[in-house]
């Protein structure tokens, strides 16, 4: 170890000292010495390496000290609500890792900022969460403003980030929608999805040969229903069966979803609809009186039994206290 220290050239030794000092001071300030040092090291290494695969449209000249990132933009339309999602990730040991706390600017149509009340331009600035995700829900006001259009472009851009290189990514979508209808045939419930798009002339254009997946919404995930590989016919229609053994939610309903996923033209579009569901729910465990329930729900025999014993014993004790008072009174009387 010592030998190695002596072998260092002056310059390297100084830079090492500087890094050590920085790490130390940062560590002290953050009191998170371990993480800080660990993280700092790969970041510095990255800077030395040539930039890896990054955002599709990398505009700014590569600045040293910043890591390359990958920016993804996706668009989801669920019934009438639209949202744009961004995902920012970097490569670490050949694995994709989400980048958190990155500010992403989201533009509509064009990057140029415009004055207020013009829908074109900056929509929002998003900050990614710990997984590198951020979502922007388009407001009703915005939806109304673009009601007469059927093709939209969203541009996401990362500029002047302290840690990462600039990146830009855009997505262009043709508007589509899915409407759901339910049927009952021979006690078999089915759901039918109609997928329609738009163009300049027609507002209700059936979409053919689009692969549609059906789901029922559950607490933490979507339960796939229907056969595999369903796709729309010429009328833009596809049908799936809803299994009878699905449990309804607390309101006696289930939410059925039909979805086209990451379509090249329409992106992700889904239709959601609730249906009254007859299958009764299992009643949630009613907490009666038991040894493991709260104090006020203690089993009756336990409460009665213990109270009985306590009152009995303490009754006698209080009787004996009374005897002490009697002794004191006897001391005061003169007779005897």
């Amino acid at each position: 170890m010592l030998n190695r220290m002596y072998n260092l050239t002056g310059k390297r030794a100084i830079s090492l000292l500087v890094i050590l000092f920085m790490a130390f001071s940062v560590g002290q300030a953050f009191s998170q010495k371990d993480t800080t040092e660990k993280v700092k090291a790969p970041a510095d290494q990255k800077a030395a390496k040539p930039a890896e695969k990054s955002g599709s449209d990398q505009k700014a000249a590569p600045t040293t000290g910043k890591a390359a990132i990958e920016l993804k933009v996706s668009y989801v339309k669920s019934n009438d609500s639209r949202s744009v999602k961004v995902h920012v990730s970097r490569k670490e040991n050949k694995k994709s890792v989400g980048c958190d706390s990155v500010s992403v600017s989201l533009y509509f149509d064009e990057v140029k900022a415009k004055e207020a009340n013009d829908i074109t331009g900056l929509l929002a600035t998003l900050v990614t969460d710990e997984n590198g995700d951020a979502e922007f829900k388009l407001t009703d006001k915005f939806n109304k403003a673009i009601a007469d259009r059927w093709k939209y472009t969203f541009i996401a851009s990362i500029e002047n980030d302290k840690r990462y290189k600039n990146a830009e990514e855009e997505v262009t979508i043709s508007d589509a929608s899915i409407t759901l209808t339910f049927d009952l045939k021979d006690s078999v419930k089915t759901v039918t999805a109609k997928l329609s798009g738009r163009n300049d002339t027609t507002a209700d254009l059936p979409i053919n040969k689009a692969s549609v997946k059906f789901y029922v919404k559950r607490s933490f995930s979507l339960l796939p229903i229907g056969a595999d590989g369903l796709s729309t016919n010429k009328k833009g229609i596809v049908t799936a069966e809803i299994p009878n053994d699905i449990m309804a939610d607390t309101n006696g309903k289930i939410t059925v979803i039909a979805r086209i996923e990451e379509h090249a033209k329409f992106a992700t579009v889904e239709g959601r609809k609730d249906i009254e569901w007859k299958t009764p729910r299992i009643a949630s465990e009613v907490q009666g009186r038991s040894l493991w329930s709260v104090g006020k729900n203690a089993p009756v025999p336990l409460v009665v039994g213990s109270c009985f014993i306590v009152f009995l014993v303490w009754g006698v004790i209080f009787y004996l206290f009374y005897q002490l008072i009697r002794i004191k009174k006897l001391s005061k009387t003169k007779a005897g």
Partner: peptide, 21 residues
């Protein structure tokens, strides 16, 4: 001492209380 006066009645109470206890 609760003003103990060494009275037979007091001893009686004490002895009875001891028996109960």
């Amino acid at each position: 001492s609760l003003g103990w006066k060494n009275k037979p009645e007091q001893y009686k109470i004490v002895k009875r209380s001891i028996a109960i206890l």
